[in-house]
Amino acid sequence: MSSGFRAMHPAVGLLYYAGLLLFAALITHPLFLITELAGLILLLLLQGQGRQLLRGLPFYLLMAGSVAVLNPLFSHRGAHILFYLWDQPITLEAVLYGLIMMLVLLTIFLLFISYNYTVTTDKFMYAFAAAAPKTALLTLMAIRFVPLFQRRLREITLIQRFRGIDVGEGSLRKRMRDGMTLLKVLLTWSLEEALQTGDSMKARGYGIRRRSTYSIYKMDWLDKAVLLLLGLSGLIPLILWLQGYGAFEIYPRMKPLVFGSGEAVMYISFCLFVLIPPGLEGKEIWLWRSSRRKAYPSVTPEPNGTRSMSSPLR
């Protein structure tokens, strides 16, 4: 099932997630990070990935939280010493830096959940194929072999158990030898088949001229518009950041956060960038909800209506 942001051209998704990743790594301003995190959570919820998010959350929090805790314990840079722990100074800068890193990590984790859902492997390969068709073809063929080999190995293991070749029992030495035998069977069989695959490729004219690519994705005007909008709203914060706006310096000595007009422009543009995909998803949801209300008027009986004529009690 795909709709909304997920149904768009792969280039849109790739641009969005690349942009988010870039911002998460570059702009360490807490406001920007929190906005990005909130935007991603909103997108995940709208995409119906709330359960996925909840399932992974303990792990992500543990990972990111441990960074926040460990950083002040190991890093003692900074000028404001809060207190001493086992004769080690704990500095305000290190605590803050740890917290910022936690936000960055969380953002990246959530980004990849959303990315995996939105940009599936074949979409990525499609975008990749435009740049390097031969490599993309090879990669696709190789990707196909992974599940294929797994299925074959399962079959081989089952049958070879009949001749006493079983990695599940015996001494370590025997197990290793049996494992190698199983792999050997798999390889011989697969190489044999690969010859036939090669024949079939050649028979269909592989390698006689430059390949063209068939695409199942078409770029429509909405894709183009969103792509343009994302590009513009992403470029503005990037340029401003290069000018030195929105910087948040912690080490060696924390500087106060500034939020001037430059930052305001940057933030508005950044918000636009982050919120376009959740907006698209939201619009989709609203569309379906309203169409459910309005569709098939003949089937839905009116609340007070035309049938009253048949009622003798009126």
């Binding site: 490729m201 269909r204 592989y206 006689i208 430059r210 390949r211 063209s212 690519t213 068939y214 695409s215």
Partner: peptide, 9 residues
């Protein structure tokens, strides 16, 4: 096969 022959999309 069609990609191999370089046909137009």
């Amino acid at each position: 096969g069609m990609e191999n022959l370089g046909l137009a999309p």
